[in-house]
Nucleic acid binder design. Structure first.
Lengths: 214, 214
DNA sequence: CTTGACTTGAGACGAAAGTCTCATTACAAG
DNA sequence: CTTGTAATGAGACTTTCGTCTCAAGTCAAG
């Protein structure tokens, strides 16, 4: 695959300029139309549509500010094995990227929601890459033996809700919290959930019934 | 407030017909334009815009299958004042509605996300009706005095994340949990968060440090 | 330089959102 | 029933999306 087609450089530069222009406008807080991005890139609107099938596809691929946190970059030089400290560090990194690119993340999520019903057989790029679970498991790895399996599973699921784009939506759009307040609530949730998971006496208690507190 | 304006019945019926038509089309799996909804309701497009400022506002208010839980319906005959039991009851109701109308909720959220950016200075109707906060506060009301103010605020924010459509997205689309597993994680989160809020000794303890357990 | 294939720009086009105006219809009070 | 007022219908208008065509520009090989 990846046969070198005739005029690759020309197409590469056009595509790059379009994405850079889109990123510039998104960074400025705008939600630009295709015409705006094309103008900003000094490229014809028709050409923009030759490279991206829709406005959403264009904006979704615009490069993000900051770097995407990866388990390696976060925990390479991390001495602590305290799950709360490690989770908090990971969440802080995701928080920064997510809130700095709020508009873009919102649009990406909207695009995914509109056709996730896997109705269309066309599967070019993997639509829903799940970065957060890897991050959470890496943060919990050193302390994993302190959790019962069932508690660990629930904790990971719960943290996946706290970490992603979706929590940004709730805190920002629904509750109208500012980023710092949102960050503070998430930190508090991490503490509470880890504490609960560590305190879990035995796995798989499905109903709220039949639990005995100390 | 609520002064009986001159021709209230007439306006009530048009509004009701518009929402019913929108619900009918949404239930049929369509993502209808304003013109389609207006035609389906046998009402002029201009009139539809007189009642709803945008297509999104119209579709967002279209009635869902099943009944939306309200504080009154949930807690009218509820004897318990245990916050966990009451929150769990409220969450169960929201869970049912949300998962039963998963497709419709996903589309509604997607449409809202597409231009929910607060770039437009217009701040008329919130466009984002926040039902969940009322539900949460009603569930916590009998036990409110047992929480410190700061803990109460964080708890409400955290629960807003657990309750809404967004958690359905994470559990269903990202983590691929089945509805029962999702429900179980949410119940576990409610217990953990309430316990943490009740244990909070004094407001605003930002770091994980300086906490003493009993 | 010439040539042919490929890319680009310009603009027309239809669909839909959203706003506006004006004539017509329907309600409700007298 | 008559009448003033409010609601409605019809349609023009602007903007954006997304598609399409055709002419002009550009690359690279011969």
């Amino acid at each position: 695959m990846s046969v070198p087609r005739p005029r690759d450089n020309q197409r590469y530069r056009t595509r790059k300029d379009l994405l850079a222009a889109a990123a510039r406008l998104l960074r400025a807080g705008r939600s630009p139309s295709v015409a705006e991005v094309a103008d900003e890139a000094r490229i014809s609107r028709a050409t923009a549509y030759r490279y991206f099938p829709s406005r959403d596809a264009l904006l979704a691929e615009a490069p993000l500010d900051g770097e995407q946190p990866t388990p390696e970059s976060l925990f390479a030089s991390e001495g602590s094995s305290d799950p709360v400290a490690r989770l908090d560090k990971a969440e802080a990194a995701m928080h920064r990227v997510t809130f700095a690119n709020a508009t873009q993340h919102r649009l990406m999520l909207a695009r995914l929601l509109e056709h996730d019903g896997r109705d269309d057989g066309v599967e070019g790029p993997p639509l829903r890459q799940n970065r957060r679970t890897a991050l959470i498991e890496a943060a919990l790895a050193p302390a994993r033996r302190r959790f019962r399996p069932a508690a660990y599973g629930k904790l990971c699921s719960a943290l996946a809700l706290v970490f992603g784009t979706e929590s940004m939506i709730v805190f920002r759009d629904v509750l109208r919290l500012d980023p710092d307040a949102a960050r503070s609530v998430k930190r508090w949730m991490i503490e509470a959930l880890v504490a609960a998971a560590l305190a879990e006496p035995s796995g798989s208690v499905p109903a709220a019934r039949s639990r005995r507190r100390a």
